[in-house]
Structure formats: structure tokens, C-alpha cells
Design a protein around this nucleic acid. Structure first.
Length: 258
DNA sequence: ATGACGGTGTGGCACCGA
């Protein structure tokens, strides 16, 4: 059983890469962020031919999230209940897997630009709303994974330059506290359950040879509930798609569950 | 300090991302 998350930075551009990646890595579910397209343009048919049922929550130009699954999907929720939002950033669904229901909450977390900006304030409100909702969601769905592009580097070791970037976006105390608050709900960072290569990141800037120099951040995460935690046997970043022509700036993260 | 790269839009650059 494998679940994965990948910010594709435009599904229109990246669909061939997504299909190729799924052919090579037939995960049970793939959560996508930054679709940058509306639902009428979502490639339901191409993914169906690849063996995946999809639920999507898109918008024009920005944001947009989807869950692709080899198992039947139900109980779809779009965005955070009770939190008014014009931006399409969350989709949740329950997978009917052979070993039981698996609740996936897929988020494209707010970037936040810089501390002190309106966008940063929006990020804080959004994170607070997510936390409030997830507390209920975990009670209703004990077997839950929160995945996606968190736009938070949780610790210094998740950044290529924690000193130079101290207190800048992705690195602030406030963002990291919100990440810890999510963990305090009973969630665990699946990546840190295992020994990992140093300087493992999931995003690299397109500019200034960021990937070639491994100047990256680990901001894409798979958090698992207490019920799932003992089942996780691996969690890795797959850097290979970042080497493709016309790559996304993010790489997929994959967790394996027994 | 700035911009660099890439995607989108109805564009001739501006915006957003991280």
C-alpha cells in the first residue's frame, strides 16, 4: 500500500509526467497540488485509463488539488468546512482499501510570501482553521493521513540554508509552531520515522541551478495518524522527476504502509 | 539589494510561487 503527494505546478503541463510516473510507480493514491486548471479541464479520462479514479477541486490559474486513487473514493470534502475561502486548497476523501478505510486530506497550504504581509496573516488563519477541522476529522476517521505541500520547513535540517533563511518564509517560528500543533493532534511526520539521507528536500528553486546545487527545502509532507503510524514501513522523496525536461519544482513524496 | 525560472493570462509585461 503506497500513498504519494506531488505539487505538479500545472497539471496541463505535467500530465505526461504524472502518467509516466504512475506507470513506473503504481501507488494506491496520488495527491496532487497546484493543478492550475478548472474541473472542466481536469483529465479524468486519461487518469481513468491509467487505472485511477479522481476527485478534483480546481480553479483557474492558481491553486487546485486532486486525489487519484486505485480504490473507490467516497465522502469528498472540498476546502475546510466552516472556513470561507475563495482559493481551492484542500480536498479530502476516503479510500476503500482492502485493509480498511483510509482517509486522505490533501492540502496545498498557503505560501505566505513574507512575515508581516497580508498573505502571511492569511496563512496563519488558514493553518488555525485547518487545525480546528482536523481535530474533528481525526475523531471521525482514525485512519487518516494529512498530505500535501505544507509550505513549511519544519526544522533547520529541512532547509539548505537555515541560518541565512532564518525567520524568512517557510522557516518562521510561527509556521513551525503550526506544524507542531498539527503533530500534537496525534499526527507523525512519516519521513522522520526512518533514517534519511542528509539534505533531503522536496522542492528546489527553478532559478540559479537550485536543484543542481541541491539548494532545496523539505516542505512536502505525509503526516499519519496514530492508527496508521505502526503500519508505515518507508517514506522517501523521489528526486527523479525533478531531473525531467520541464520538471515541476517539487518532487513526489511516497509513503509505504503495510 | 536585486533578480534569476517557470506557469498563466488576453499579454506585449504583471502576477505569483517558495
Amino acid at each position: 500500500m503506497q500513498i504519494a503527494t506531488w505539487n505538479v505546478n500545472s497539471l496541463s503541463v505535467r500530465l505526461p509526467q504524472v502518467l509516466a510516473w504512475l506507470a513506473a510507480h503504481p501507488v494506491d493514491a496520488l495527491c496532487l497540488q497546484e493543478l492550475k486548471l478548472t474541473d472542466d479541464k481536469f483529465p479524468f479520462d486519461a487518469l481513468k485509463e491509467a487505472g485511477y479514479e479522481s476527485v478534483a477541486f480546481g480553479q483557474k490559474t492558481y491553486n487546485g488539488v486532486a486525489i487519484l486513487s486505485r480504490h473507490p473514493l467516497s465522502d469528498v470534502v472540498r476546502n475546510i468546512p466552516g472556513h470561507d475561502d475563495e482559493q481551492a486548497r484542500v480536498i479530502a476523501a476516503t479510500l476503500a482499501t482492502p485493509s480498511g478505510p483510509l482517509r486522505l486530506v490533501n492540502g496545498y497550504f498557503v505560501n505566505g510570501q513574507a512575515p508581516g504581509t497580508d498573505k502571511f496573516a492569511y496563512k496563519m488563519l488558514w493553518l488555525t482553521a485547518l487545525h480546528r477541522w482536523l481535530r474533528e476529522e481525526l475523531q471521525a476517521h482514525p485512519r487518516l493521513a494529512l498530505v500535501g505541500d505544507f509550505n513549511v520547513a519544519p526544522e533547520d535540517r529541512d532547509s539548505f540554508d537555515p541560518v541565512g533563511l532564518k525567520d524568512t518564509i517557510h522557516h518562521t517560528v510561527e509556521e513551525r509552531q503550526h506544524f507542531q500543533d498539527l503533530l500534537a493532534l496525534g499526527l507523525t511526520d512519516a519521513f522522520r520515522l526512518f533514517e534519511q539521507p542528509e539534505k533531503t528536500y522536496s522542492w528546489w528553486d527553478y532559478r540559479m541551478l537550485g536543484f543542481q546545487k541541491n539548494r532545496g527545502l523539505r516542505i512536502d509532507h505525509i503526516l499519519v495518524s496514530e492508527a496508521l503510524r505502526p503500519l508505515v514501513t518507508a517514506c522517501v522523496v523521489d528526486r527523479a522527476p525533478r531531473k525531467n525536461p520541464q520538471p515541476s519544482d517539487h518532487a513526489p513524496v511516497v509513503a509505504t504502509l503495510a
